[in-house]
Design a protein around this nucleic acid. Structure first.
Lengths: 236, 236
DNA sequence: CCCAATATACTACCATACAAGTTAACAAAT
DNA sequence: ATTTGTTAACTTGTATGGTAGTATATTGGG
Protein backbone atom coordinates (compact mmCIF):
# COMPACT_ATOMS: atom_id res chain seq x y z
CA UNK A 1 0.00 0.00 0.00
CA UNK A 2 1.19 3.50 -0.77
CA UNK A 3 1.19 6.06 1.97
CA UNK A 4 2.61 9.52 2.16
CA UNK A 5 2.02 10.87 5.64
CA UNK A 6 4.85 12.04 7.83
CA UNK A 7 5.48 12.59 11.50
CA UNK A 8 4.77 16.02 12.78
CA UNK A 9 7.89 17.95 13.70
CA UNK A 10 8.98 17.53 17.27
CA UNK A 11 7.81 20.48 19.34
CA UNK A 12 10.58 22.88 20.25
CA UNK A 13 9.46 23.05 23.82
CA UNK A 14 11.87 20.67 25.44
CA UNK A 15 9.67 20.04 28.42
CA UNK A 16 6.81 18.62 26.41
CA UNK A 17 9.37 16.99 24.14
CA UNK A 18 10.29 14.54 26.85
CA UNK A 19 6.80 13.09 27.12
CA UNK A 20 6.00 13.19 23.42
CA UNK A 21 7.36 9.78 22.56
CA UNK A 22 7.66 8.39 19.08
CA UNK A 23 4.89 5.93 19.87
CA UNK A 24 2.56 8.82 20.73
CA UNK A 25 3.50 10.68 17.58
CA UNK A 26 2.86 7.61 15.46
CA UNK A 27 -0.51 7.18 17.16
CA UNK A 28 -1.49 10.77 16.36
CA UNK A 29 -0.46 10.49 12.74
CA UNK A 30 -2.23 7.20 12.17
CA UNK A 31 -5.37 8.32 13.97
CA UNK A 32 -5.68 11.34 11.71
CA UNK A 33 -4.93 9.24 8.65
CA UNK A 34 -7.69 6.83 9.59
CA UNK A 35 -10.23 9.52 10.43
CA UNK A 36 -9.55 11.27 7.16
CA UNK A 37 -9.84 7.94 5.36
CA UNK A 38 -6.34 8.05 3.90
CA UNK A 39 -6.14 4.66 5.52
CA UNK A 40 -9.39 3.08 4.47
CA UNK A 41 -11.41 0.44 6.32
CA UNK A 42 -10.15 -3.04 5.55
CA UNK A 43 -6.64 -1.87 4.74
CA UNK A 44 -3.84 -3.95 6.15
CA UNK A 45 -1.23 -1.90 7.96
CA UNK A 46 1.82 -3.78 9.15
CA UNK A 47 4.24 -2.73 11.84
CA UNK A 48 7.21 -3.19 9.56
CA UNK A 49 5.83 -1.20 6.67
CA UNK A 50 4.67 1.77 8.70
CA UNK A 51 7.98 1.73 10.54
CA UNK A 52 9.89 1.85 7.30
CA UNK A 53 7.79 4.68 5.94
CA UNK A 54 8.23 6.75 9.07
CA UNK A 55 11.88 5.92 9.41
CA UNK A 56 11.84 4.21 12.78
CA UNK A 57 11.74 0.77 14.29
CA UNK A 58 8.73 -1.47 14.70
CA UNK A 59 8.58 -0.98 18.43
CA UNK A 60 6.94 2.47 18.67
CA UNK A 61 4.68 1.57 15.78
CA UNK A 62 3.55 -1.51 17.62
CA UNK A 63 2.64 0.53 20.67
CA UNK A 64 0.69 2.94 18.51
CA UNK A 65 -1.20 -0.01 17.02
CA UNK A 66 -2.18 -1.22 20.46
CA UNK A 67 -3.56 2.19 21.38
CA UNK A 68 -5.44 2.43 18.10
CA UNK A 69 -6.96 -0.96 18.86
CA UNK A 70 -8.06 0.28 22.28
CA UNK A 71 -9.87 3.17 20.62
CA UNK A 72 -11.45 0.77 18.17
CA UNK A 73 -9.94 2.15 15.00
CA UNK A 74 -7.93 -0.94 14.11
CA UNK A 75 -8.05 -4.62 14.91
CA UNK A 76 -4.85 -6.43 15.74
CA UNK A 77 -5.08 -10.05 14.70
CA UNK A 78 -2.06 -11.92 16.02
CA UNK A 79 0.07 -13.57 13.40
CA UNK A 80 -2.29 -12.26 10.79
CA UNK A 81 -2.05 -8.53 10.59
CA UNK A 82 -3.51 -5.26 11.76
CA UNK A 83 -6.49 -3.95 9.86
CA UNK A 84 -8.31 -0.67 9.75
CA UNK A 85 -11.76 -1.41 11.12
CA UNK A 86 -14.82 -0.87 9.05
CA UNK A 87 -17.20 1.73 10.40
CA UNK A 88 -19.87 -0.08 12.33
CA UNK A 89 -23.26 1.62 12.36
CA UNK A 90 -23.92 -0.12 15.63
CA UNK A 91 -20.68 1.12 17.16
CA UNK A 92 -21.36 4.64 15.97
CA UNK A 93 -24.75 4.53 17.65
CA UNK A 94 -23.20 3.06 20.80
CA UNK A 95 -20.63 5.83 20.94
CA UNK A 96 -23.34 8.40 20.37
CA UNK A 97 -25.42 6.99 23.19
CA UNK A 98 -22.58 7.18 25.70
CA UNK A 99 -21.56 10.57 24.49
CA UNK A 100 -25.09 11.84 24.88
CA UNK A 101 -25.29 10.52 28.41
CA UNK A 102 -22.07 12.25 29.36
CA UNK A 103 -22.47 15.52 27.52
CA UNK A 104 -26.03 16.04 28.67
CA UNK A 105 -24.91 15.61 32.26
CA UNK A 106 -21.98 17.92 31.65
CA UNK A 107 -24.02 20.70 30.07
CA UNK A 108 -26.50 20.57 32.94
CA UNK A 109 -23.60 21.11 35.29
CA UNK A 110 -22.36 23.95 33.09
CA UNK A 111 -25.77 25.60 33.26
CA UNK A 112 -25.47 25.62 37.00
CA UNK A 113 -21.86 26.53 37.50
CA UNK A 114 -20.51 28.32 34.43
CA UNK A 115 -19.05 31.77 34.98
CA UNK A 116 -20.06 34.78 32.93
CA UNK A 117 -16.65 34.67 31.25
CA UNK A 118 -17.25 31.06 30.27
CA UNK A 119 -20.51 32.01 28.61
CA UNK A 120 -18.94 34.94 26.80
CA UNK A 121 -16.30 32.56 25.50
CA UNK A 122 -18.96 30.18 24.23
CA UNK A 123 -20.67 32.95 22.28
CA UNK A 124 -17.34 33.87 20.76
CA UNK A 125 -16.79 30.32 19.61
CA UNK A 126 -20.20 30.37 17.96
CA UNK A 127 -19.26 33.56 16.16
CA UNK A 128 -16.23 31.83 14.72
CA UNK A 129 -18.42 28.98 13.58
CA UNK A 130 -20.71 31.44 11.80
CA UNK A 131 -17.62 32.86 10.16
CA UNK A 132 -16.61 29.37 9.03
CA UNK A 133 -20.09 28.86 7.59
CA UNK A 134 -19.98 32.08 5.62
CA UNK A 135 -16.54 31.14 4.31
CA UNK A 136 -17.73 27.68 3.39
CA UNK A 137 -14.89 26.17 5.43
CA UNK A 138 -16.26 22.96 6.97
CA UNK A 139 -12.83 21.74 8.09
CA UNK A 140 -12.30 24.82 10.21
CA UNK A 141 -15.84 24.44 11.49
CA UNK A 142 -15.17 20.88 12.57
CA UNK A 143 -12.28 22.11 14.67
CA UNK A 144 -14.27 24.96 16.20
CA UNK A 145 -17.07 22.55 16.91
CA UNK A 146 -14.69 20.40 18.88
CA UNK A 147 -13.42 23.45 20.75
CA UNK A 148 -17.01 24.38 21.52
CA UNK A 149 -17.85 21.08 23.13
CA UNK A 150 -14.60 21.11 25.03
CA UNK A 151 -15.32 24.63 26.23
CA UNK A 152 -18.64 23.52 27.68
CA UNK A 153 -16.93 20.70 29.53
CA UNK A 154 -14.34 23.13 30.83
CA UNK A 155 -17.02 25.56 31.93
CA UNK A 156 -18.66 22.75 33.86
CA UNK A 157 -15.39 21.82 35.52
CA UNK A 158 -15.49 18.53 33.61
CA UNK A 159 -12.39 18.58 31.48
CA UNK A 160 -11.84 15.04 32.66
CA UNK A 161 -14.92 14.04 30.70
CA UNK A 162 -13.22 15.09 27.52
CA UNK A 163 -10.68 12.30 27.76
CA UNK A 164 -13.51 9.81 27.42
CA UNK A 165 -15.45 11.70 24.81
CA UNK A 166 -12.32 12.16 22.72
CA UNK A 167 -12.02 8.42 22.30
CA UNK A 168 -15.72 7.97 21.58
CA UNK A 169 -15.54 10.72 19.02
CA UNK A 170 -12.97 8.75 17.05
CA UNK A 171 -15.73 6.39 15.99
CA UNK A 172 -18.00 9.25 14.95
CA UNK A 173 -15.38 11.45 13.34
CA UNK A 174 -14.93 9.28 10.30
CA UNK A 175 -18.64 9.63 9.62
CA UNK A 176 -18.45 13.35 10.12
CA UNK A 177 -15.48 13.59 7.81
CA UNK A 178 -17.51 12.01 5.03
CA UNK A 179 -20.42 14.26 5.87
CA UNK A 180 -18.43 17.47 5.68
CA UNK A 181 -20.13 18.56 2.50
CA UNK A 182 -23.29 16.65 1.89
CA UNK A 183 -24.92 16.36 5.29
CA UNK A 184 -26.62 18.69 7.73
CA UNK A 185 -25.98 22.32 6.81
CA UNK A 186 -23.65 24.06 9.22
CA UNK A 187 -26.30 26.67 9.84
CA UNK A 188 -28.49 24.08 11.52
CA UNK A 189 -25.68 22.87 13.74
CA UNK A 190 -24.80 26.42 14.74
CA UNK A 191 -28.39 27.13 15.64
CA UNK A 192 -28.35 24.07 17.85
CA UNK A 193 -25.21 25.37 19.50
CA UNK A 194 -26.96 28.67 20.11
CA UNK A 195 -29.85 26.88 21.76
CA UNK A 196 -27.44 25.18 24.10
CA UNK A 197 -25.59 28.34 25.08
CA UNK A 198 -28.84 30.25 25.50
CA UNK A 199 -30.07 27.67 27.96
CA UNK A 200 -26.76 27.70 29.81
CA UNK A 201 -26.87 31.50 29.96
CA UNK A 202 -30.38 31.35 31.37
CA UNK A 203 -29.14 28.89 33.97
CA UNK A 204 -31.69 26.38 32.80
CA UNK A 205 -30.10 22.93 33.25
CA UNK A 206 -32.94 20.83 31.93
CA UNK A 207 -33.40 22.98 28.87
CA UNK A 208 -29.67 22.92 28.21
CA UNK A 209 -29.66 19.14 28.52
CA UNK A 210 -32.48 18.76 26.05
CA UNK A 211 -30.82 21.15 23.61
CA UNK A 212 -27.64 19.11 23.76
CA UNK A 213 -29.57 15.88 23.34
CA UNK A 214 -31.20 17.24 20.22
CA UNK A 215 -27.88 18.41 18.87
CA UNK A 216 -26.17 15.05 19.37
CA UNK A 217 -29.08 13.28 17.71
CA UNK A 218 -28.20 15.00 14.46
CA UNK A 219 -25.74 12.31 13.40
CA UNK A 220 -28.49 9.72 13.60
CA UNK A 221 -30.46 11.68 11.07
CA UNK A 222 -27.63 12.05 8.60
CA UNK A 223 -26.21 8.56 9.03
CA UNK A 224 -28.54 6.56 6.76
CA UNK A 225 -27.76 8.65 3.72
CA UNK A 226 -24.02 8.50 4.44
CA UNK A 227 -24.16 4.74 4.78
CA UNK A 228 -26.10 4.46 1.56
CA UNK A 229 -23.54 6.56 -0.31
CA UNK A 230 -20.51 4.79 1.18
CA UNK A 231 -21.68 1.27 1.89
CA UNK A 232 -18.28 -0.21 1.02
CA UNK A 233 -16.70 1.11 4.21
CA UNK A 234 -19.55 0.23 6.59
CA UNK A 235 -20.63 -2.95 8.30
CA UNK A 236 -23.85 -3.93 10.17
CA UNK B 1 10.25 -4.17 46.76
CA UNK B 2 8.93 -7.63 47.54
CA UNK B 3 6.09 -9.01 45.50
CA UNK B 4 4.57 -12.43 45.28
CA UNK B 5 1.90 -12.38 42.64
CA UNK B 6 1.93 -14.73 39.70
CA UNK B 7 0.43 -14.92 36.27
CA UNK B 8 -2.84 -16.70 36.01
CA UNK B 9 -2.62 -20.01 34.20
CA UNK B 10 -3.17 -19.80 30.48
CA UNK B 11 -6.73 -20.81 29.63
CA UNK B 12 -6.98 -24.22 28.07
CA UNK B 13 -9.28 -23.00 25.38
CA UNK B 14 -6.83 -22.58 22.55
CA UNK B 15 -9.03 -20.17 20.66
CA UNK B 16 -9.03 -17.57 23.41
CA UNK B 17 -5.45 -18.52 24.18
CA UNK B 18 -4.32 -16.92 20.95
CA UNK B 19 -5.65 -13.51 21.86
CA UNK B 20 -4.70 -13.59 25.51
CA UNK B 21 -1.24 -12.14 25.13
CA UNK B 22 1.35 -11.96 27.86
CA UNK B 23 0.96 -8.19 27.94
CA UNK B 24 -2.75 -8.59 28.66
CA UNK B 25 -2.08 -11.13 31.37
CA UNK B 26 0.49 -8.88 33.01
CA UNK B 27 -2.01 -6.02 32.84
CA UNK B 28 -4.67 -8.10 34.59
CA UNK B 29 -2.31 -9.21 37.32
CA UNK B 30 -0.96 -5.75 38.02
CA UNK B 31 -4.40 -4.16 37.92
CA UNK B 32 -5.65 -6.53 40.59
CA UNK B 33 -2.50 -6.03 42.64
CA UNK B 34 -2.99 -2.28 42.55
CA UNK B 35 -6.71 -2.41 43.33
CA UNK B 36 -6.07 -4.70 46.27
CA UNK B 37 -3.28 -2.40 47.42
CA UNK B 38 -0.58 -5.04 47.27
CA UNK B 39 1.11 -2.43 45.14
CA UNK B 40 0.60 0.71 47.15
CA UNK B 41 0.32 4.28 45.90
CA UNK B 42 3.74 5.86 45.45
CA UNK B 43 5.48 2.54 44.93
CA UNK B 44 8.01 2.40 42.14
CA UNK B 45 7.47 -0.53 39.84
CA UNK B 46 10.10 -1.01 37.18
CA UNK B 47 9.68 -2.90 33.95
CA UNK B 48 12.80 -4.95 34.59
CA UNK B 49 11.88 -6.00 38.10
CA UNK B 50 8.32 -7.03 37.30
CA UNK B 51 9.61 -8.86 34.24
CA UNK B 52 12.09 -10.78 36.35
CA UNK B 53 9.46 -11.71 38.91
CA UNK B 54 7.06 -12.94 36.26
CA UNK B 55 9.75 -14.67 34.23
CA UNK B 56 9.25 -12.59 31.10
CA UNK B 57 11.06 -9.96 29.14
CA UNK B 58 10.49 -6.27 29.61
CA UNK B 59 8.44 -5.98 26.45
CA UNK B 60 5.08 -7.35 27.57
CA UNK B 61 5.49 -5.70 30.95
CA UNK B 62 6.09 -2.40 29.26
CA UNK B 63 2.88 -2.71 27.26
CA UNK B 64 0.99 -3.51 30.42
CA UNK B 65 2.42 -0.37 32.04
CA UNK B 66 1.21 1.74 29.15
CA UNK B 67 -2.30 0.38 29.51
CA UNK B 68 -2.26 0.90 33.25
CA UNK B 69 -1.22 4.48 32.63
CA UNK B 70 -4.17 4.92 30.25
CA UNK B 71 -6.51 3.75 32.97
CA UNK B 72 -4.87 6.13 35.41
CA UNK B 73 -3.53 3.56 37.85
CA UNK B 74 0.15 4.31 37.26
CA UNK B 75 2.20 7.18 35.93
CA UNK B 76 5.06 6.46 33.55
CA UNK B 77 7.77 9.06 33.91
CA UNK B 78 10.34 8.56 31.16
CA UNK B 79 13.85 7.88 32.33
CA UNK B 80 12.60 8.13 35.89
CA UNK B 81 10.33 5.24 36.63
CA UNK B 82 6.75 4.08 36.77
CA UNK B 83 4.81 4.82 39.93
CA UNK B 84 1.54 3.62 41.35
CA UNK B 85 -0.67 6.67 41.45
CA UNK B 86 -2.06 7.97 44.67
CA UNK B 87 -5.84 7.86 44.92
CA UNK B 88 -7.14 11.27 44.00
CA UNK B 89 -10.37 12.27 45.68
CA UNK B 90 -11.02 14.54 42.74
CA UNK B 91 -10.45 11.75 40.24
CA UNK B 92 -12.71 9.41 42.20
CA UNK B 93 -15.47 11.99 42.07
CA UNK B 94 -14.83 12.60 38.37
CA UNK B 95 -15.12 8.90 37.65
CA UNK B 96 -18.26 8.68 39.74
CA UNK B 97 -19.82 11.57 37.85
CA UNK B 98 -19.21 9.99 34.45
CA UNK B 99 -20.28 6.61 35.68
CA UNK B 100 -23.51 8.06 37.02
CA UNK B 101 -24.24 9.77 33.73
CA UNK B 102 -23.74 6.53 31.82
CA UNK B 103 -25.38 4.08 34.19
CA UNK B 104 -28.45 6.23 34.74
CA UNK B 105 -28.94 6.43 30.99
CA UNK B 106 -28.37 2.69 30.71
CA UNK B 107 -30.82 1.71 33.43
CA UNK B 108 -33.48 3.92 31.89
CA UNK B 109 -33.00 2.02 28.68
CA UNK B 110 -33.16 -1.24 30.60
CA UNK B 111 -36.46 -0.20 32.16
CA UNK B 112 -37.87 0.23 28.68
CA UNK B 113 -36.40 -2.74 26.90
CA UNK B 114 -35.46 -5.46 29.36
CA UNK B 115 -37.01 -8.86 28.83
CA UNK B 116 -38.75 -10.76 31.60
CA UNK B 117 -35.84 -13.21 31.64
CA UNK B 118 -33.43 -10.32 32.18
CA UNK B 119 -35.40 -9.16 35.18
CA UNK B 120 -35.58 -12.65 36.62
CA UNK B 121 -31.83 -12.84 36.28
CA UNK B 122 -31.39 -9.56 38.12
CA UNK B 123 -33.46 -10.82 41.05
CA UNK B 124 -31.34 -13.93 41.16
CA UNK B 125 -28.18 -11.87 41.35
CA UNK B 126 -29.66 -9.96 44.26
CA UNK B 127 -30.41 -13.23 46.03
CA UNK B 128 -26.78 -14.18 45.75
CA UNK B 129 -25.80 -10.84 47.21
CA UNK B 130 -28.09 -11.46 50.16
CA UNK B 131 -26.39 -14.81 50.58
CA UNK B 132 -23.00 -13.07 50.58
CA UNK B 133 -24.25 -10.66 53.21
CA UNK B 134 -25.46 -13.44 55.49
CA UNK B 135 -22.13 -15.23 55.05
CA UNK B 136 -20.22 -12.06 55.77
CA UNK B 137 -18.32 -12.45 52.51
CA UNK B 138 -17.72 -8.92 51.17
CA UNK B 139 -15.24 -10.06 48.52
CA UNK B 140 -17.80 -12.34 46.95
CA UNK B 141 -20.34 -9.54 47.23
CA UNK B 142 -18.04 -7.16 45.37
CA UNK B 143 -17.91 -9.59 42.50
CA UNK B 144 -21.66 -10.16 42.44
CA UNK B 145 -22.13 -6.42 42.58
CA UNK B 146 -20.07 -6.08 39.45
CA UNK B 147 -22.05 -8.84 37.78
CA UNK B 148 -25.25 -7.04 38.75
CA UNK B 149 -24.28 -3.78 37.12
CA UNK B 150 -23.05 -5.61 34.05
CA UNK B 151 -26.32 -7.54 33.87
CA UNK B 152 -28.28 -4.31 33.79
CA UNK B 153 -26.13 -3.03 30.96
CA UNK B 154 -26.65 -6.29 29.11
CA UNK B 155 -30.40 -6.14 29.66
CA UNK B 156 -30.38 -2.67 28.16
CA UNK B 157 -28.41 -3.85 25.16
CA UNK B 158 -25.53 -1.70 26.32
CA UNK B 159 -22.72 -4.12 26.94
CA UNK B 160 -20.54 -1.68 25.07
CA UNK B 161 -20.99 0.74 27.93
CA UNK B 162 -19.28 -1.68 30.23
CA UNK B 163 -15.96 -1.24 28.48
CA UNK B 164 -15.97 2.38 29.55
CA UNK B 165 -17.34 1.82 33.01
CA UNK B 166 -14.81 -0.92 33.66
CA UNK B 167 -12.00 1.57 33.28
CA UNK B 168 -13.72 4.20 35.38
CA UNK B 169 -14.36 1.65 38.07
CA UNK B 170 -10.62 1.06 38.43
CA UNK B 171 -10.37 4.44 40.12
CA UNK B 172 -13.22 3.67 42.49
CA UNK B 173 -12.38 0.06 43.20
CA UNK B 174 -9.37 0.83 45.36
CA UNK B 175 -11.65 2.90 47.56
CA UNK B 176 -14.19 0.15 47.66
CA UNK B 177 -11.54 -2.38 48.54
CA UNK B 178 -10.59 -0.34 51.60
CA UNK B 179 -14.25 0.06 52.44
CA UNK B 180 -15.03 -3.65 52.33
CA UNK B 181 -15.46 -3.88 56.06
CA UNK B 182 -15.90 -0.49 57.60
CA UNK B 183 -18.18 1.36 55.21
CA UNK B 184 -21.78 1.15 54.12
CA UNK B 185 -23.36 -2.12 55.28
CA UNK B 186 -24.04 -4.52 52.44
CA UNK B 187 -27.68 -4.60 53.46
CA UNK B 188 -28.06 -0.97 52.44
CA UNK B 189 -26.44 -1.56 49.06
CA UNK B 190 -28.60 -4.57 48.41
CA UNK B 191 -31.74 -2.59 49.23
CA UNK B 192 -30.62 0.01 46.72
CA UNK B 193 -30.19 -2.73 44.14
CA UNK B 194 -33.71 -3.90 44.91
CA UNK B 195 -35.05 -0.42 44.33
CA UNK B 196 -33.39 -0.36 40.94
CA UNK B 197 -34.71 -3.72 39.83
CA UNK B 198 -38.19 -2.92 41.14
CA UNK B 199 -38.30 0.20 39.03
CA UNK B 200 -37.02 -1.69 36.01
CA UNK B 201 -39.63 -4.39 36.55
CA UNK B 202 -42.32 -1.73 36.74
CA UNK B 203 -41.03 -0.30 33.46
CA UNK B 204 -40.48 3.03 35.17
CA UNK B 205 -37.42 4.59 33.52
CA UNK B 206 -37.27 7.79 35.52
CA UNK B 207 -37.70 5.98 38.80
CA UNK B 208 -35.03 3.48 37.84
CA UNK B 209 -32.69 6.30 36.91
CA UNK B 210 -33.16 8.01 40.24
CA UNK B 211 -32.67 4.75 42.12
CA UNK B 212 -29.40 4.18 40.31
CA UNK B 213 -28.32 7.76 40.95
CA UNK B 214 -28.94 7.31 44.65
CA UNK B 215 -27.04 4.04 44.65
CA UNK B 216 -23.98 5.49 42.93
CA UNK B 217 -23.95 8.42 45.33
CA UNK B 218 -23.14 6.02 48.15
CA UNK B 219 -19.40 6.23 47.60
CA UNK B 220 -19.51 9.97 48.14
CA UNK B 221 -20.98 9.40 51.56
CA UNK B 222 -18.40 6.86 52.64
CA UNK B 223 -15.40 8.58 51.07
CA UNK B 224 -14.59 11.20 53.72
CA UNK B 225 -14.21 8.62 56.46
CA UNK B 226 -12.08 6.40 54.25
CA UNK B 227 -9.83 9.32 53.36
CA UNK B 228 -9.49 10.26 57.00
CA UNK B 229 -8.50 6.72 57.96
CA UNK B 230 -6.08 6.26 55.05
CA UNK B 231 -4.78 9.72 54.29
CA UNK B 232 -1.33 8.42 53.41
CA UNK B 233 -2.52 6.95 50.11
CA UNK B 234 -4.72 9.87 49.05
CA UNK B 235 -4.03 13.19 47.40
CA UNK B 236 -6.16 16.35 46.88
C1' DC C 1 -8.33 -29.97 -15.48
C1' DC C 2 -8.82 -30.25 -10.45
C1' DC C 3 -7.41 -30.92 -5.85
C1' DA C 4 -4.28 -31.69 -2.10
C1' DA C 5 0.27 -31.29 -0.10
C1' DT C 6 4.05 -28.23 0.36
C1' DA C 7 6.96 -24.22 0.11
C1' DT C 8 7.22 -19.35 0.69
C1' DA C 9 6.26 -14.94 2.22
C1' DC C 10 4.16 -12.53 5.09
C1' DT C 11 2.23 -11.30 10.16
C1' DA C 12 2.48 -10.07 15.29
C1' DC C 13 4.57 -11.61 19.76
C1' DC C 14 8.37 -11.93 22.66
C1' DA C 15 13.36 -11.58 23.97
C1' DT C 16 17.47 -9.13 23.96
C1' DA C 17 20.66 -5.29 23.24
C1' DC C 18 21.69 -0.54 23.07
C1' DA C 19 20.92 4.46 23.83
C1' DA C 20 19.70 8.47 26.46
C1' DG C 21 18.14 10.59 30.56
C1' DT C 22 17.65 10.92 35.79
C1' DT C 23 18.96 10.35 40.50
C1' DA C 24 21.84 9.65 44.33
C1' DA C 25 26.09 8.98 46.39
C1' DC C 26 30.65 10.25 46.98
C1' DA C 27 34.99 12.69 46.41
C1' DA C 28 37.42 16.87 45.86
C1' DA C 29 37.89 21.74 46.14
C1' DT C 30 36.57 26.04 48.28
C1' DA D 1 30.91 22.59 56.66
C1' DT D 2 29.35 23.54 52.02
C1' DT D 3 29.33 23.26 47.38
C1' DT D 4 30.49 21.37 43.03
C1' DG D 5 31.91 17.76 39.73
C1' DT D 6 32.05 13.05 38.67
C1' DT D 7 30.66 8.47 38.68
C1' DA D 8 27.71 4.61 39.03
C1' DA D 9 23.35 2.55 39.27
C1' DC D 10 19.17 2.89 38.15
C1' DT D 11 15.04 4.22 34.83
C1' DT D 12 12.27 4.18 30.25
C1' DG D 13 12.63 4.69 24.99
C1' DT D 14 14.10 2.60 20.81
C1' DA D 15 16.22 -0.88 17.68
C1' DT D 16 16.84 -5.53 16.18
C1' DG D 17 16.71 -10.61 16.08
C1' DG D 18 14.30 -14.92 16.59
C1' DT D 19 9.93 -17.70 16.89
C1' DA D 20 5.45 -19.38 15.94
C1' DG D 21 1.35 -18.94 13.51
C1' DT D 22 -1.31 -17.75 9.18
C1' DA D 23 -2.36 -17.02 4.28
C1' DT D 24 -1.13 -17.55 -0.32
C1' DA D 25 1.15 -19.26 -4.16
C1' DT D 26 3.13 -23.27 -6.20
C1' DT D 27 3.88 -27.77 -7.25
C1' DG D 28 2.95 -32.65 -7.72
C1' DG D 29 -0.29 -36.31 -8.21
C1' DG D 30 -4.83 -37.90 -9.45
Amino acid sequence: MKLDFKLKPMPQNLESHRRYTMAQRVFDVLKQAIIQLQLRPGNLISEAEIAKQLGLSRQPVREAFIKLADVGLVEVRPQRGTFVMYISRKEVENARFIREAIEVAVVKKAAIGASDEDITGLWQLIERQQFDDQNGDPVSFMQHDEEFHLAIATAAGCQHAWRIIENLKAQMDRVRFIALDNATPLKTLIEQHEMVVSAVAERAPELAGEAMRLHLAEIVISLPKIVADNSEIFVD
